[in-house]
Design a protein around this nucleic acid. Structure first.
Lengths: 238, 238
DNA sequence: CGCCTTGTTGAGCCCTTTCAAAGGATGTGG
DNA sequence: CCACATCCTTTGAAAGGGCTCAACAAGGCG
């Protein structure tokens, strides 16, 4: 216990994100650490959840990216949201729930069972806030698809990912790992990969975005936010 | 109590919808009826919820239509979802929640405070399922905007509304009240009202849809569903 | 080194938007 | 019961954003 400050600096991305959502007790953090040690690997392109199948447990992403996805009868594909380290998968209050969409790993991942929140006000609140954020990001996705043009969609989504990764301290000054292919990006943004490619080039030409070796660098976050009118997502009172 | 069957036939749309989500006790139904008697009127175009303001209570729609909405800095508007009789507004598990979008009345409405679910397994489950459905309809909206063309968007949304209104028995054989203007429809579907108008005409010409005097009639639900590949939304095991 | 996935580029087309303007409803007050 | 205002629907013409369909380059991996 005397080493708490030291331990704090060693916290994992998952612990950092959940801590940013609610005040967690030492016991909560210990439970998170234990869960992380028990994490299981999931390979890229594997399904974490399959649409229409019963949901058994709530999972927690330790590392790697996943996405909620729907595939239409004719092969068209739409990513609904991205799932990042510290995000919950399949958290749900009702009995006998059924998955309303699939969840697929976009990278190799580590996934664990989410620590039980019973009896922990901190985890209960963190999970509730996490759910509220999930919903807020779904709404943001709807606005992007409904009312943003291609360039705005790309910029806004990338800014959102930066914002979310920041909660887990997975960014440094507008720079972060970006494992999405242009086709994946396109299927999230309701565009074709060809057009996504051209718009990314446009953002690069204007110097708004530098994308190289699976890493993104946004030199001027504030300017880019202003350009697409982006406000940070807030779900609770300061 | 001896008159239960009679009472059952008199159930309100709200009671019918909530009953379709979970098994409700006579006490639950009584609480719903009491809430309905205490309903307050809300005039068309009034806000039920304002974005960024704290959420105080959970509301229940007794009659009329509303919509969750976001307005961009430049005036562009996007409806996120429609709220129909029996739907909950502002239901939320975390502490100090803030509204992530506004909710505006699309018609004159009656709205009441949602009966407290503490101590009622039936209402607790009904609310949980209602939330799960809300999310499922958000996902459906994302797919519509991301991967459907204009005609498919319109048809799919109208089919969804039919499906949802059916839970409250507010439809009869593919016929139901439809109070949306074409501009509202357009702002929900990420289209312009001009194009929405033309696509509606197209659906009328092909006989898929009859729209007159604020009422819609879908002569062949099954055929229309097949045409847009629509499956019913399911969130729990049968 | 060769395969396979991912990224890039060009040209033409089409769905949807934009910008007007007119036509119909609906409701209110005189 | 008509006049008038307002909101909603309808129509036309032209432009544009994003798509389609290739084909080719480049990069990672076994």
């Amino acid at each position: 216990m005397s080493a708490l400050p030291l331990i704090a600096t060693r916290r994992s991305p998952v612990a950092r994100r959940l801590s940013s959502l609610a005040t967690l007790s030492p016991g909560d953090l210990a439970a998170i650490e234990a869960a992380e040690r028990a994490a299981m690997p999931v390979r890229i392109r594997r399904d974490l959840v399959v649409e229409k199948r019963p949901i058994t447990e709530s999972k927690l992403i330790v590392s790697g990216w996943a996405a909620r996805v729907r595939v239409l009868y004719d092969g068209r594909r739409q990513f609904l949201s991205f799932l990042l380290p510290g995000d919950l998968v399949g958290h749900c209050a009702q009995s006998d729930p059924v998955a309303v969409c699939s969840v697929v790993a976009l990278t190799d991942m580590l996934v664990t069972r989410a620590p039980d929140s019973d009896g922990s006000p901190g985890l209960t609140e963190a999970y509730a806030v996490s759910r509220a954020l999930d919903e807020a990001y779904l709404l943001a996705q709807i606005v992007r698809l409904g009312r943003y043009n291609a360039l705005e969609r790309i910029a806004d989504l990338i800014l959102e990912l930066e914002e979310r990764l920041s909660c887990a301290r997975l960014t440094t000054g507008g720079r972060f790992r970006f494992p999405l292919t242009q086709e994946t990006l396109a299927d999230a943004l309701g565009l074709t990969s060809v057009h996504t490619n051209r718009m990314l080039q446009s953002l690069r030409r204007t110097g708004d975005l530098i994308l190289r070796g699976g890493e993104i660098y946004l030199p001027d976050l504030a300017a880019l936010r202003a350009r697409v009118g982006r406000l940070p997502v807030v779900v609770r009172q300061a």
